[in-house]
Nucleic acid binder design. Sequence first.
DNA 1: CTTAGGG
DNA 2: CCCTAAG
Length: 650
Amino acid sequence: MVLNRRLEYGFNGYQVPAMPRGTRSARRRNSIKKNVEDSKMHAFDLLATLAGKLLVGNSSSSSSSNSSTKKDQFPVTDSTSIEERRQNQFTTQLELQACDQASCGRSMLDPQLVSQKHHDPKLSPEDTQHPVMGSTDSERLGTDELRIDKRNDETSRNAVVEPLTSTDSKLEDDTQNEIKVEQLHSDKAPNDNGAVMYSFRDPVVWDAKPLMQISLESGAAASFPANKDRIAHDSLSPARNVEVVSRDDDEKSSGCTHPVPTKKSFRPVPHIGDRRIRKVLASRHWKVALRSKNEFPRTGVNFKADYKDKSSYYKRQRSQRNYPFKKRKFFDIDFESYSDKEISSNAAVYPSENHTDGDVSAKRPSPPASVKLRIESFTVPELFIEISETATIGSLKRAVMEAVSGVLGGELRVGVLLQGKKVGDDSKTLLQTGISQDNQLNSLGFALEPDPSHTSASPKVSSLFPCDVPQPLIRYPIGPNDSQKRIHDTLPEHEDMNIPIVAENDCDMATSPVGVLKKGTTQSKALVPVSSMNVEALAVVPVHRKSKRSEFAQRRIRRPFSVSEVEALVQAVEKLGTGRWRDVKLRAFDSAKHRTYVDLKDKWKTLVHTARISPQQRRGEPVPQELLDRVLTAHAYWSQHQAKQQLKHI
DNA sequence: CTTAGGG
DNA sequence: CCCTAAG
């Protein structure tokens, strides 16, 4: 097996999925002032929401959905504050298309761990000394038996950005999606005037090329969905507008019109390998999307308050994950590499019906017409990822995820492109700019650009950003279903493969060559999104500068212990006792890098608990009673043993 | 860094 | 799983 050869994946484009219209809120309505700046902000807003809940998945997943995902998902919060615009003249309807993207569940084919030594039921104190005997390699949950199949690469060739908030209910086909959209339209459009609808298109899959270099053809700009016509039709709702907007259901949210300030504590990071990364990531501070000029209600407050109360800290930290935008530390050198990200999008300006003759116009002299915008999707131009060849698919996913997060979570601002030209004047109205109902099929593009006000960290690099050059709009016309289907076709039966391909939630598990990875773990974690537009930046910021830990760690994905693992754990504990988790880890899970001794300790805790409750109350993969019995036995034994020790000490 | 526990 | 207080 190749040792730690590195793969570099360059993602030329990345389609941002449709916006989830979660239960809690992906819908909002804002009254806004209609000028270019606002358009940007809206686009940005959407992205902001999106940014917080992406999750990279292998599109190879043909498997089932898994509700367990829900636990790890980022709570969809109405993070998007309702911006109260002064003297709003127009109402903007923000409708986020539902995005119940099929969450590929994960089907864990538990690695067949072999060679588990027979466990000796007899426990003797001697055994507790040093497990000299019986600690053969095969005894470990090693990876010896596991192999990475070359085809594994296949998996990595496709990736999809999925909303992290995938629901159990999946959309089997586009139909449902469309239905929702339509409902949404018919639902609001008629009454709410001057609606500007933003609707993210379905998630698209990019199809990476095989081999080390994965890059996407940057397709030409704006390609509209096949159903564009229909969409346009749908949005043909009257758009006459009146000043005052009925805030009906908005009232509910009006209470929190102003976003709850997000605070983030900042604390020193201990150095502990993975943990360290996690911690860092966990403590990344989030920031509300900050717009230049204080126009943006969600003024990015860069809180760094410290919480003394740990519980509150924890909670807040969690809750903050709802916040779409994370703030990048200025002092983080990595910033540069992300700063020049751009996300372009395809958007169409749909004319609203010309109701110049309508009732509204009768009442009002010349009611400004409203424009309905449909943002097909934002595309993250390119991501550059470097990852160990022996990294697992799960790692790859994370890497991609982090890269994407880096792009979406950076200090960005939205740029507006009209017919390929950048619209610079933020004060102009849409009309003045040429975005109006008359301007039917002109493509309106939204691009993410580094926010000048935040690129101070690296003026040099940021200056390289070709802000004035309209970026090509990239699109990968693949419907969600197509993607599913296609990928499924592309990736043959996983069953035949040596490695169980875990569909959704990650999977380095025992399926990965963790052993090999061990030494280079940190490296494999390194990924640096690099803009294709900014070659120079590459020079300035070497790709392999893996140093800076990525700031986008999420809660570790849940990896239920397999029976084999439990078996190994029980066996180890029986031998070593309950107070030597480090040893247990070394002994039985040395090669399972994702199982820390704390994890093992926790697992033992739950095992004991599980063993004590009735089988009916147990959940998850059933653990053989035999094992549970051993758990209780061992637990009892060691508890007593421990007690004795303590007595001795006293 | 490890343990031990609470969340 | 996460987070921490204590060794």
